[in-house]
Computed example of a mutant assay.
Amino acid sequence: MIETFTDKKGWNQVIESIGKFDFYHTYEYHRLLAKNNDIPALIKYTEGDTLIALPLIFRKISGTDYYDATSVYGYAGPIEKRGSYFEQSAFKNELHQFLFKHKVISVFSRLHPYIDGQSHTLKDLGEICFHNLVVNIDLTQTLDEQRSRFNKRLKTYINKARRECGVIEATTTQHIREFAAMYNENMLRVGAEKTYFFDEQYFIDLLKKGKFNTQLLLVVHNETEEIISGAIFVKTQNVVQYHLSGSKTDYLHLNPLKLLIDEMRIIATQQGYTYFNLGGGKSGSEDSLFYFKSSFSKDFRPFYLWKYVVNKEVYEQLSNKSFDSTLKTNVFKTCDYFPAYRSMARTL
């Protein structure tokens, strides 16, 4: 049986009854990311004592009566409490019929590298493909064991940054505003797509409303007393997520982000967390961003994407090209932009 939840109470009761989830699965985070006429919804599937929950944001496809669904920025995908009986084909058929009935053309979701079983749950529903590796710092190791795995040059950078800078936790709205400006400065510098830019209110809501266990750490330059860098970390259950960060261009030579990650590594270890997810590189490649993160640890985890064409005929029409039949299989491979029609016409 399939039910949907668009209200805070019902949504969060479902994910809490499952027990294993991240803040990316919560109602609050979906509402924070939803734009204009987007509809955040949690799809709940029950079969006996098995429960599966799939959070998505449904978007109207401009100029049509159709929708598509996508995941939030971050790591989401299905979560489940598997009981004594589960029939994959029944779940597959019910989910397909539900999506088709509600005129959903395609579904895209980023899966969670630290939640097991998601690929199995989505088996034979479209395509699951490898996107990149993400970097984990194993917080169950001692601080000295963790540091022993650092790149030698990284240790030098962190030691220098600690001599010239200090780290504080953001406590005021002004701190958040300064961080928002640094973050968006970073996005401009690297030529990021507009989807990676957030307005000031996003950061205020994320940090000030008590919905999430978040910390914004800031680096202060000792000599100038200027805030030169910041990073937001979000803690859920046993996972710490390195969420967003930014630094002032004039101070990049001091490597303040390396200092921030090291500081959170120490804090989170002392607080008893298990995983510290630094994420991966840009656009699925092992680029300079991945190299930066992997200097902390070589504990890599695969990060997968799920894409599913629900209505192939309409998908073809919207994409203005023939449908690739390989999407029908559960093949792990490099992903092209999906859905194709949003790649060609981002205003859809």
Score class of each variant (00 low, 15 high):
R147A: 06
H175Y: 01
R149E: 10
I204H: 12
F198R: 10
R163K: 13
F197N: 01
A192Q: 05
V190P: 07
E145L: 04
N186A: 10
N151V: 02
N159S: 13
I158K: 02
C129V: 14
D138G: 00
K123W: 13
R189D: 15
I176H: 01
I128N: 12
R162L: 13
R147N: 04
E193W: 04
E178P: 00
L133V: 08
A181C: 08
T195L: 15
T156P: 01
H120N: 13
A180F: 03
E169P: 00
K160W: 09
T173Y: 04
V134I: 10
R162H: 06
E145V: 00
H175Q: 01
N132P: 00
F150P: 01
K123P: 09
T156G: 10
A181K: 14
Y157M: 04
R147T: 03
C129R: 14
S148P: 05
L188W: 11
G126M: 09
S148K: 12
I176G: 00
Y183F: 14
Q146A: 01
C129L: 13
V167P: 09
H175K: 04
R147Q: 09
M182C: 07
K160F: 11
F203A: 05
F198V: 05
K155W: 10
K160Y: 12
C165K: 00
L143H: 01
T121A: 08
N184R: 05
T195E: 15
F197A: 08
V134P: 04
D138V: 04
V167R: 08
Y183K: 03
Q174V: 11
R163Y: 04
E178M: 08
T156N: 14
F179E: 00
V167D: 10
V167Q: 11
V190N: 09
D138N: 12
H175M: 04
M182I: 03
I158N: 06
I137C: 03
I204E: 03
Y183M: 02
R189E: 15
N151W: 07
I137T: 03
A170D: 02
G191W: 08
K152T: 13
I168K: 13
K152L: 10
D199W: 02
C165I: 09
H120M: 12
K160Q: 15
V134K: 00
N184W: 05
